[in-house]
Design a protein around this nucleic acid. Structure first.
Lengths: 129, 129
DNA sequence: GCAACTGTTATATAATTAGTATAACAAACA
DNA sequence: TGTTTGTTATACTAATTATATAACAGTTGC
């Protein structure tokens, strides 16, 4: 899996990495049980520090996207992905609210917004199914 | 307009304030030409520093949501809201992509996601139209 | 056994951001 | 003449982000 980071972005590197890996899972480029590079390998590949990778991995582990075996390695959770819990649903709403607020203020209709979302959905899932 | 800030949130105060004001515009609680409290008044009301308010106002001014007259005051842009430019469309996509990526990874369908968005749309716009 | 690798932990440092605290300025206004 | 406006400047604290090393304990392969 190819990961491009934007070092100039205001989005922290560890968050970019977390998001890219989740998107990789969403697009099925990464499948359950698949091993991920070690923190040191990934750090060398991307040219960033080991701890930055570790921070992303810890977030992914905390949310249940990956498993970390002490001296074995990192794998995409073989037991499947975390479910749509009420807690996640709420955090999703909290994240969407200011975004949708601005869209409305700028005159976007619910339909317009839905089209944008649909575009992104198909962009991410257009791969083999 | 009543503004509640969460001082414990990981979202910076000035961003919370920016988002609340934009949501106020979206819900038509704030209308074009309506004056906003001065940076000092707002700071006193919310119990935060003047510069924190000023930072939010500068962001809103920069995006065209409000106008700031040097010695008059701050008003919601009387000439209407900023349009849906290509630049905004792109930043909207950039913001939505990681959110939608996680939704897909957790097994949400486009339809499920659309329902959540529709809920938020109606929550914000349920007021007088 | 030994070397290489794993995640983990610890410490230190630099840069940036967020927020506060004052203070002063020039223009507008009652 | 005060008061209020946005603006600008300086200084400081705290937290976050990212890097740089270093060491540890368990695993694996030779």
């Amino acid at each position: 899996m190819i990961i491009n980071l934007d070092l100039q972005s205001d989005v922290p590197i560890y968050l970019q990495l977390r998001n890219k890996i989740i998107e990789g899972i969403a697009s099925k480029e990464l499948v359950a049980g698949e091993p991920l590079p070690s923190v040191r390998m990934m750090a060398a590949d991307l040219g960033v520090n080991m701890h930055t990778i570790n921070k992303a991995y810890q977030l992914l582990k905390q949310d249940g996207f990956i498993l970390i075996h002490r001296q074995k390695g990192v794998v995409v959770n073989p037991d499947g992905m975390p479910e749509v819990t009420n807690e996640y649903r709420q955090s999703l709403k909290d994240a969407l609210r200011p975004i949708i607020g601005e869209a409305i203020a700028r005159g976007m209709s619910a339909k317009d917004f839905q089209v944008v979302c649909a575009e992104i959905f198909s962009q991410i899932t257009r791969e083999v199914d």
